[in-house]
Design a protein around this nucleic acid. Structure first.
Length: 476
RNA sequence: GCCCCCUUCGUCUAGGGGCCCAGGACACAGCCCUUUCAAGGCUGCGACGAGGGUUCGAAUCCCUCAGGGGGCGCCA
């Protein structure tokens, strides 16, 4: 009987939630959902200089928008709290005390200036820049004396002289030679713990079973393995996914445009589409499938199929995928998403106060949309009266023949039955009168009514505009 | 400098010794459908980083190199 899966997403609140972090969170979340496990959110805010409340708020907001809700963490609490590292300081102190007590760690009094000098010297001599272990063998009495004297010191772990092996879920076997690492710091002179130490203490304390994170942490795992060993705790299973790259193949950053999850929400992307896209960037089921609902993703997801190689974030494909999800929505689902956007763009339009017309409008424009933000411009093009801009269009509606057609059509429209069959017949009759057919018939009408040579289907536009408006536009 | 990871169309990827002179998707081009634009359908364009092995046979296994990325902090 295997224990329940416990996974976590542990961001540091030093900026917005970007797509890379979101994908890491997603992989963990999917795995928890798939296995019936728990998804834990832990905020790694030990870097007081850079952490901000604003970032925390944004992070929680974006996670919620994505629907990546957590079983334990900020706001919801849980049995292994607190879930902010800044509130767990006593826990780290305790773990550190334990390590010093059992001889796996020791106080180090070397000053930063000394270390910097040694580092430089090592670099000049082309040696690796590890801590040389000066304080490792200090006599117990001396240590006690210096601590009692209030001498500032850090706590370092004794790195054992041995190789370490990681069986990574996505990378396979990864090995580190003994000499690649020097005794590293776990507690700063301020008493604040250091990242690698917090992670191990927290993951152990929170009984995390699987650590799925980005590749930038792969080498950190070496240190963490050492810490687990020193603590006498069995390490979790690790899986390191690759980084997401910008379109120039460099690590994703702000200069790559919208990389913030919140920005995608604002730009009219569907959370389900972003999730679908992120999931497929660095994971696949082993087949050609592209479109998944969130539930389908949960069903198909496996950690073993996370890919090793880094991926470029392709905004174009995201847009396409969003369009796929958007078009798959029922009008009932889409309507409440789009309606506020339409009302915001055209606050005074009486037709938007008419539920039936609004619904028809949404039905009409759905196929033209790739993002929710496409709705208002498309709708505006129909609802607002506008004059054609291109020379060609202006010429088309200015001929005598076109003018005759519009007059005839206005007459026909004023007496026909205002349903699709009705206006189709009217258009046909007007065409006959003005001796126009096919493209010469429909194009001028479209341009005259909407001011543009393209847009949604004409009959749908007539539906939405209504008889009076259409006739007025024809006679204008 | 040292350590670790990665390398299939422009991009996301399938593939894991013969099924592959490499399949799908986005993008791009053309055609079809259509009263327009979309959407949809079809077709085309387009890749195994390089060099050595192993093998009857290599995108696939091994080695070397190159390129890219990450780490080597009292950052996370």
């Amino acid at each position: 009987m295997s224990q329940q899966v416990r996974v976590r997403f542990a961001p540091s609140p030093t900026g917005y939630l970007h797509v890379g972090g979101a994908r890491t969170a997603l992989f963990n979340w999917l795995y928890a959902k798939k296995t019936g496990g728990k998804f834990i959110l832990r905020v790694e805010d030990t870097d007081v200089e850079r952490s901000t409340q604003e970032s925390v708020d944004g992070l929680l907001r974006d996670m919620k928008w994505l629907g990546l809700t957590w079983d334990e963490g900020p706001e919801v609490g849980g049995p292994h709290g607190p879930y902010f590292q800044s509130q767990r300081l006593h826990i780290y102190q305790e773990y550190a005390r334990r390590l010093v007590a059992n001889g796996a760690a020791y106080p180090c009094f070397c000053s930063e200036a000394d270390l910097e000098a040694k580092r430089q010297k090592a670099e000049e001599e082309h040696r690796s820049v590890h801590y040389d272990g000066t304080c490792r063998h200090l006599a117990k009495e001396e240590v006690e004396r210096r601590i009692a004297a209030g001498e500032p010191h850090v706590i370092r772990v004794k790195v054992p002289e041995k190789d370490y092996v990681l069986e990574d879920l996505v990378r396979g076997r990864v090995e580190w030679k003994a000499e690649t690492l020097g005794d590293f710091i776990i507690l700063r002179s301020s008493g604040m713990p250091v990242y690698n130490f917090c992670v191990v203490a927290d993951d152990a304390d929170m009984q995390i079973t699987h650590v799925v994170r980005a590749e930038e942490h792969l080498t950190n795992t070496h240190r963490q393995l050492i810490l687990y060993e020193a603590l006498g705790i069995k390490p979790p299973i690790f899986g390191h996914a690759s980084l997401i790259l910008g379109e120039d193949k460099s690590k994703l950053s702000k200069r790559h445009g919208a990389t913030a999850v919140g920005q995608y929400a604002e730009d009219g992307f569907l959370r389900e589409a972003l999730i679908n896209f992120l999931a497929l960037l660095g994971w696949n089921e082993g087949n050609d499938r592209e479109i998944y609902s969130v539930d389908e993703l949960i069903e198909c997801f496996t950690l073993e199929r996370i890919s090793k190689s880094p991926g470029v974030f392709d905004h174009n494909k995201l847009i396409w995928m969003n369009g796929q999800h958007l078009r798959a929505l029922s009008v009932d689902t889409l309507l409440p998403m789009v309606e506020p956007l339409l009302k915001k763009a055209m606050p005074d339009d009486p037709r938007l106060s008419n539920p039936e017309l609004t619904r028809k409008l949404v039905e009409l424009i759905q196929i033209k949309m790739n993002t929710l933000n496409d709705a208002a411009p498309v709708a505006e093009a129909i609802l607002r009266t506008s004059q054609p801009e291109s020379e060609e269009d202006i010429a088309m509606i200015s001929t005598d023949k076109s003018k005759a057609l519009f007059t005839a059509l206005a007459d026909e429209f004023s007496k026909c039955e205002w349903v699709r069959d009705g206006y189709n017949a009217a258009i046909k009759a007007a065409g006959k009168t003005a001796e126009a057919k096919g493209k010469d018939l429909f194009m001028p009408i479209r341009v005259k009514i909407t001011g543009s040579g393209h847009g949604p289907e004409l009959v749908g536009i007539l539906d939405v505009l209504g008889r009076d408006e259409v006739i007025a536009r024809l006679r204008a």
